[in-house]
Design a protein around this nucleic acid. Structure first.
Lengths: 109, 109
DNA sequence: TTATTTAATCGTAATATTGCAATATAATTT
DNA sequence: AAATTATATTGCAATATTACGATTAAATAA
């Protein structure tokens, strides 16, 4: 079908999946890294830096924005994108919860 | 196109994207949680617990296994799946690196 | 107002993902 | 060996994703 059965999962599971999907692409990982290092935060600069067409980068930025992970502020003719601190921390917390819930010894095999 | 331009990204970025994609689905998050809590680690049990058909769960398990995040050991007629500790820690480390690289103050907007 | 600059949207082709019924495979039990 | 039990694979329909050329929209500058 190509459609996920979201109704059988918890809101937490669905939210985490959506945010993870947003960062589960090398271009979007690269974009986040460039934004964090402040090497580039403008669509055109990111496009040049990455070697991806401007519409492609714009689309990736839109997905990161839809997931709430970045925010854009208008800077004259261009738009400066940066991390949205609250969602970023929330995702970090949720992932820490998932990863720390596993201890080597509580395995059954 | 539907195909990612992996060649323009680093191996690290591609690997992280692949592992994140593996866990970026609510069913696979739920499966990991059930495995970690040792509430279920067998395909049939997971299928019953989640309310997804057996082939669907089998496919999700395969994807997690392909990403190296779980491993299966044959237990008689059934297969017991559990976390692959090395890859699990590696992904955790990589994510910690990404998240900790961001500090609120190094933003440009 | 008319350029100019930059980002967003539209449209589209190629490919990937999701979910499951039907079936095949593998291990155990009788 | 035949039956049983459990998982994996195949095939398929519906939908989603990726990438980009062409175009549009929005803001500033001349």
């Amino acid at each position: 079908m190509g459609i996920t059965k979201t109704e059988i999962f918890t809101d937490e599971q669905n939210k985490l999946a959506i945010q993870l999907k947003a960062i589960a692409h090398p271009a979007r990982i690269a974009i986040l890294q460039l934004i964090i290092e402040a090497k580039a935060c403008i669509c055109g600069d990111l496009s040049a830096e990455l070697g991806l067409a401007q519409p492609t980068v714009s689309q990736h930025l839109k997905e990161l924005k839809n997931a709430g992970l970045i925010q854009g502020s208008i800077e004259g003719v261009s738009v400066c994108y940066c991390i949205e601190p609250v969602a970023w921390k929330s995702l970090n917390d949720e992932l820490n919860k998932l990863f720390s819930s596993y201890q080597n010894f509580n395995n059954c095999c």
